[in-house]
């Protein structure tokens, strides 16, 4: 996938680029809206990551431009402002998602995949990884065609790990994915351990391979090989 990262903080841009490239994406960056417009004139992308707080003009204008020219790119706003108004305006102008800084790269990647999936012509509503099939509409997990019962949080977590397969996801990122911003429970790291253990057990009991790997107590990895 081709991804344009519009972000004036060079360090953040490069680490996003590094992570997403590692997952097989083709990333390019723009540090200003002018630069972003130039690139958009020349190339087409699958997804644009847009920082709203850039120096040389309103990021919202770029959104209007994309909407006016009927561009097909999915847009994720990444902003330091966690304000409902900003969110509503951004989404109203055609952005597909809104991610508040700071975020985990695994979260960003999961959101990009969700948008691409939604945007793709046939709307692929199934994710298949070897013997595991995930039905996104029915929110069901099957192993070799056999239904595996999972709680809502387990389902979300499995989806999150598969979206970032091959990458280590920190417990901190997993907790934040599940609890979001609302709860002050984001420090319940042990809780993730219980969840992963349950998912693992349910999958292997249904005859799937064990793809979860613990990494030095800091996180987990859904192994690809």
């Amino acid at each position: 996938m081709k991804i344009l990262i519009v972000e004036d903080e060079a360090s953040l841009q490069s680490s996003i680029s590094e992570y997403l490239s590692g997952l097989g994406n083709n990333c390019s960056g723009a540090i200003s809206y002018t630069q972003a417009l130039e690139k958009l004139d020349l190339y087409h992308y699958d997804c644009i990551l847009l920082d709203l707080g850039l120096g040389d003009g309103e990021g919202l204008q770029l959104l209007s431009y994309l909407k006016r020219t009927n561009r097909a790119e999915g847009v994720i706003i990444i902003s330091a402002r966690n304000s409902l108004d900003d969110k509503l305006i951004g989404l109203g102008l055609g952005a597909d998602d809104y991610l508040t800084k700071p975020f985990h790269l695994s979260e960003l990647n999961a959101r990009i995949l969700a948008i691409i999936r939604r945007k793709s012509a046939h709307g692929e509503r199934q994710i298949v990884f070897r013997e595991i099939t995930i039905d996104l509409d029915a929110k069901e997990v099957k192993v070799n065609g056999q239904l595996v019962h999972m709680t809502r949080k387990e389902f979300d977590l499995l989806l999150y790990f598969i979206a970032n397969k091959g990458k280590v996801i920190s417990k901190s990122a997993a907790v934040e994915h599940i609890w979001g911003d609302d709860a002050d429970m984001a420090d319940s790291f042990d809780f993730i351990y219980t969840h992963i253990r349950n998912i693992r057990k349910k999958l292997t009991d249904a005859g799937s391979g064990d793809y979860f790997q613990s990494v030095y107590g800091v996180g987990y990895k859904f192994i690809n090989e």
Binding site: E9, S11, L12, S15, I16, E18, Y19, G22, I78, A80, R81, T100, K101, P102, F103, H104, L105, S106, K167, V168, S170, A173, V215, V218, G219
Partner: peptide, 20 residues
Amino acid sequence: SHEMMTPLAIINSRLDNMLQ
């Protein structure tokens, strides 16, 4: 608080990459 969010985002993303 807002100004701290971007540096935090950098730390977070660098950590995510170091973890790999």
